[in-house]
Simulated scan of single mutants.
Amino acid sequence: MTDRLPEVEARRASVQELGSVTDVMRSLAAMRLQQALAALAGTRAYAGVVAGALAQAVSLQDDAPARWPQNGHGGGQADVLLLFAPEHGFVGAFAERLVDAALAAPPGCLLWVAGQRGAALLEERGRPPVWTTAMATHTDAVTATALRIAEALYGAAAQGRLGRVELLYGRTGAGAPPEPVRRPLLPLDLPRARPHPLPPLTNMPPRDLIARLVDEYVFALLADAAMESFAAENAARLSTMMTARHNIEATLDELTATARHLRQEQVTTELIELVSGAEAMG
């Protein structure tokens, strides 16, 4: 068995290197999770401010619609489920849970995906998305991701191809595993404020102001969902890396005990050979 010692020591060194990589990934996921959770307060406050401004703008128009857009389903319109998925792997079963929730959508519902990992899983399941984009890999890129999605939605709406739009993304709580969350996006229920004796000053017609603020509010909701998804992805990756680190430590303990046993066996064998040789010479 002593000839196995180099093999065990080589495997132990390899596992130690893997542990170092896991530690780096765990630290990076923890840092990005904290950044995303801190940024979420800003995205939610931004959405709240835009919603308040939109409510005041709606109060300026007597015949303001209750929903936006007002047009119903037409022959060329289709419902859309927009999935925010991880861009990369090492998230455990989190990406699969999101994809399972997306596959529960009716067959006529179009799947849009932000995140290459989610798009690849849908492709493997036999229901490829009709539109994809990259998911943000750091907090500063969330705005760009939300902007790309908003532009695609506006383009489809301008062509009369867009029906109802629903968001599907992950949400993480205080230490809890991330879970899929569904949220309607379009048509948008317009918030309404109580009439104020001193209406706000505006420099454009209420209808145009409402349209501008609706665009801004939709973008704010997309940015909030993207930030939630980014936080959930890193929470799942952190949990996966912590589990991997635990398994690596258990494997290292086992390999260390095996190597110690083999070294002791090697020393015992050498002593026996030394004593036997000395007796033969005597």
Rank of each mutant, 00 (worst) to 15 (best):
L185P: 01
M31I: 07
R32L: 01
A29L: 06
E166V: 00
M241G: 05
T139K: 06
Y169H: 09
P129Y: 04
N247V: 06
A223E: 04
L167W: 14
Q34R: 15
P69K: 08
P106C: 01
L40N: 04
V142Q: 02
L40M: 05
G92F: 03
V214F: 10
A114D: 10
A105E: 13
G118V: 10
V99L: 07
G175D: 12
V218L: 13
L238W: 07
M242H: 08
A280P: 02
P206C: 14
M135R: 14
A55M: 11
V218E: 09
L18G: 14
P65I: 06
L33Y: 14
L37F: 02
D23C: 03
I248W: 10
G126K: 08
S14E: 13
G75S: 09
A29Y: 07
E179R: 06
I272P: 08
R127M: 06
N71Y: 08
Q70A: 12
V58M: 01
P86R: 01
T258L: 03
T133E: 12
E265S: 10
W68A: 05
L60N: 12
Q116V: 05
L213H: 08
G72W: 03
M204C: 03
A57W: 03
L5C: 03
H261G: 04
T43F: 09
A236W: 02
A53W: 06
D208Q: 14
G170F: 09
A64S: 15
L186W: 07
L188E: 09
Q61H: 15
E7P: 03
P65C: 06
F219C: 08
V21Q: 11
R207Q: 15
T202P: 03
L121T: 06
Q56Y: 00
E179T: 08
I272Q: 15
Q264N: 11
P86D: 02
S59G: 04
E87S: 05
T258I: 01
A141K: 12
Y154H: 10
A278K: 15
R125C: 09
E216M: 10
Q16M: 13
V24T: 11
L190A: 14
E228R: 13
A232P: 11
E249T: 11
L18D: 12
E265K: 07
L60V: 11
V181G: 04
R164K: 07
P205G: 07
D62G: 15
L162D: 05
M241S: 11
A235N: 08
T269E: 15
V15S: 10
T22I: 08
P128T: 00
G42N: 02
L186D: 07
L209F: 13
A47H: 03
A136V: 05
V58H: 02
G170S: 10
P200V: 06
D79K: 03
G173E: 00
L271D: 12
I149H: 15
P187A: 01
E228N: 13
R4L: 15
A226I: 09
A78P: 00
L147S: 14
V15I: 15
A231E: 03
A236I: 01
G115L: 07
L110G: 04
T172W: 05
E7Q: 10
L81A: 15
A85N: 09
A95F: 06
F90H: 09
V99H: 08
R194W: 01
V21E: 12
L274Y: 15
A51W: 02
S239R: 11
R161H: 13
A93P: 00
Q16H: 13
P197M: 00
D79V: 05
